[in-house]
Structures are given as C-alpha cells and as structure tokens.
Design a protein around this nucleic acid. Structure first.
Length: 419
DNA sequence: TCTGGGGTCCTAGGACCC
DNA sequence: TCTGGGGTCCTAGGACCC
C-alpha cells in the first residue's frame, strides 16, 4: 500500500443540539433534544448527554422522555443551523478548495495540495478544529487517513470532539477490532446477517473469502464490503453531482385514507416538489408515490411519462391516481395509512419556455383536460409571488395549509439537496 | 403512544428490440 | 416454429446514508 494519509473527514458533533447549547448556555452539559414541536413530537437531534441515555434521532418524544426523564425539549433554530454550518464549511475551504460537502454538517477534504502551505495533516486538523471552536463555538471531530472510507471511520472513532489520524502502516491494526457496523453501507440488516455468520468485526470481514461475502449479501454489497474491509478504496474527493430525484413526504400518524385527506396531503407535497423543480428550471418524467400503512409496511407505485413535468396541479393529479392504485385491492375501510410521499425522478433541464408542455393525448396517464400551458403560466405567477412575499403568501388552497405537517418546513429545507 | 424527512443505489423480473 | 443472446427501459421493493 502506497500513499500518505491526506484525506480528512470533518463531522460536527451532534450538530443541531450543539447549536442549541451554543445559543442558550443554560442548555450546556444537559440532555436536550431538538423537537418538531415544543412538547417533543419527534426527536430531530439529541445532545451527547441525551444520547448517553439512549435517545436517538427519529425517536418519538414520549419514548425519549421515558429513556431520559430529565430530557429538555427545545424548538430548533433552523436558520442558525444553516448559517453556522456554512461558516464551518468556509473555514474548511480556507485550507483547500478540494472540499466535498456530503451533508449540512459533514465534509471530506483532500489535503495533498495543502501540506506544503500549512504543514502535516495532523497540524491542519488541529488548526481547523481550533478555528471552528473559537470562531463558531462548535465541537467538530476529524478523522485523517489514506482513503475516504478510513477517514470517515476515524472521525467516528474520534467522536466526540476528537482527532484520529490513521497512518498507512497502522491501518490493519486500527480497523480489525472495530465493529462491522462502522463500515459504510452496513446497516442493521446487514449487520445481523453478518453476525449470523459469526462476522462481527472488520477483521472478521476482511478474512472472509470474497465469494462467500457476495453469496451472503449479493454482488454489489459483497464486492464493495470486501474492498472496504480490505481497505482498498479508490474513491476520490469530488464535488457532488446534482440531485437525481426530488421528493417530499409527510407522516401523519394513523389515518384512514379519506379522499379529502389524501388530496390535501398530496397537493402540499406536490407543491413542494414541483416548485423546487421549477425554481431550477428542471422537470422529471417519472412520478413515484409511496404509501405507508400502519405497521410500517409501505408500497410504491410509479409511472414514467413521455414528457417531463414540473406543474403542481399535474403532479398532484398523477400522485392521486398512483395513490389510489396503491390502495386498490385493499379493504379501504381497514387500510389505515401513516405516510404519503411524492417523488419525481428522471430529471432533465428545461428552458423556461419548454416547461409544461401538455402531456400528449396518447399518454395513458394524461391527467384532466386543462392544458399544460395554462397550468405552467399559473404556477409561474404563483412562484413569482412566493419569491417576493414568501412561500406562505399564496398557493393552491389545500397546499397552503397543511393540517398534517409534523415538522416545520425550515427543517425540511436543511435536508434538501442541490438540484 | 410505534417510529421524521430528503436522498442514493441495488436487485429482480418483465417488456421490447435487434 | 422454435431457438439464441444482449441491451435498454420500466416497475416494485428494499437497504442504507445523513
């Protein structure tokens, strides 16, 4: 193995919760959770003090409170999250332009061109951590290694608020005792499947013959895992691609799928998706709806059109058709649903004038009789008003007031990928 | 009192074409 | 008429990531 340890992975610790503790000193060193609403709702993020009690993101508020009775719920300051995370990224950019941001609070850096200016990677990491702490008030963990995969594992091991450098000649010794769940791509299902075969550590995995792992987990996962466990990772630090799909979902507890409810939720979701597409002059040919039933089982129905769409009303109508398709053949009186999602994929760039050509009459999924051009014009006017006066100023009536939203739109926006 | 939201990639079967 | 292969697109489901 050749090469130096010059890939850096930086990961803010319990990011949303750390920001809240920064903004309100009374919350420091205390178990807190950022909730969808003041009384909890769902846990969007937990501080390390709360994590110590088993509190995790995605957990319901009551469940978290049971695990940690002193847990304090705070409402999120979502705009601050974006501002501070962008500030952190700016600090990272000060040592190299080779920055690959992979989420709001996490990035890879390639330091191979920076060491002659700033010193050894370990020195650069210490500098970055100090600057993020001093200038933004936030703890950040850093891992450094020869590959992205290894750097990422190193930063996980470094948490909280630490630095781990894995030199090339230490890699095996570092990796072998670690649990397989630290490998990128090994989730709960794969972890269990591997455990059934006695494979618990990365060392176990590395010693297992490749064909065996492939037989266990399928071709793609198997070969990737083998390469990773053997620490053979060719991935480079690159600027991320544009998104390949746009989606929005809404969970609303158990409800029976009354047409009014379905229409209200879908039009809100379709509006979010379609307006994002239009804002970037994009459109998509494939529309997918996900319906989740009580018990978490979910079903998808999709359709691929002959021409891309980005119109709220057209997307709403297609989504409605697909939803009823998904519910077809079930006893609708019994079938309670807990989530609806709308996704558009097969994206293409559109000149503004091309947007929303009417769907051709021969298309079996051609919705309604309203001309696409008229809908396009209407959407454009609505978009313009929203740009001037904010998203809530105007919209299709059902979309304007989502009775069911469990999480504020500001939170959703943090998770959106660049289109 | 079941479990948020926005994404990516893989698999497998079928349709269709050459 | 029956037999091939290979390639591409579409649909549905599922695991995983942050």
């Amino acid at each position: 193995m050749v090469g130096r340890a010059t890939i850096l992975h930086a990961d803010l610790d319990a990011f949303y919760a750390s920001v809240e503790q920064l903004l309100d000193p009374a919350l420091r060193c205390r178990p807190i959770a950022v909730g969808g609403s003041a009384d909890g709702g769902v846990v969007l993020a937990a501080s390390y003090e709360a994590k110590a009690h088993g509190v995790r993101g995605g957990m319901s508020g009551w469940q978290a409170k049971r695990l940690c009775p002193t847990l304090r719920f705070v409402r999120g300051h979502f705009a601050e999250y974006q501002r501070l995370a962008d500030g952190v990224m700016a600090v990272l950019h000060d040592v190299t332009p080779e920055v690959q941001r992979i989420s709001i609070d996490e990035a890879f850096l390639d330091l191979s061109g920076s060491t002659h200016l700033f010193g050894e990677p370990r020195v650069i990491a210490a500098l970055l951590r100090r600057r993020v702490r001093e200038e933004l008030g936030l703890p950040i963990s850093v891992g450094i290694a020869r590959t992205k995969h290894l750097a990422k594992i190193a930063s996980q091991v470094a948490k909280p608020d630490g630095l781990v450098v894995v030199e090339p000649d230490e890699e095996r010794r570092f990796l072998d005792p670690l649990p397989v769940s630290l490998v990128w791509g090994v989730g709960p299902v794969t972890e269990q499947r591997l455990a059934d075969w006695g494979i618990r550590t990365i060392g176990d995995l590395a010693r297992t013959p490749a064909p065996e792992v492939e037989r266990l987990l399928g071709h793609a996962v198997g070969t990737r895992l083998n390469a990773l466990a053997r620490n053979d990772d060719p991935r480079r630090v690159v600027t991320p691609d544009r998104a390949r799909s746009v989606s929005a979902q809404s969970a609303f507890g158990r409800r029976s799928p009354a047409p009014d409810l379905v229409r209200e939720v879908l039009s809100h979701l379709a509006d979010r998706v379609a307006s994002r597409l239009r804002a970037k002059n994009r459109a998509g040919r494939t529309v997918t709806v996900t319906v989740r039933f009580s018990g978490m089982r979910s079903v998808t129905r999709s359709v691929t059109l002959s021409a891309p769409i980005a119109t709220t009303l057209t997307l709403t109508e297609l989504a409605e058709q697909l939803t009823w398709q998904a519910l077809d053949g079930r006893d609708r009186a019994d079938a309670e649903i807990s989530l609806l999602a709308v996704s558009v994929s097969n994206l293409s760039h559109q000149h503004a004038v091309q947007l929303e050509l009417p769907i051709p009459p021969e298309d079996p999924h051609r919705p309604g009789s309203t001309q696409g051009a008229a809908r396009w014009a209407l959407d454009r006017s609505v978009d313009a008003v929203c740009r001037r006066f904010g998203r809530r100023a105007v919209g299709y009536l059902p979309a304007a007031m989502p009775r069911t939203a469990s999480v504020p739109d500001e939170f959703r926006e943090l998770a959106e990928h660049e289109l």
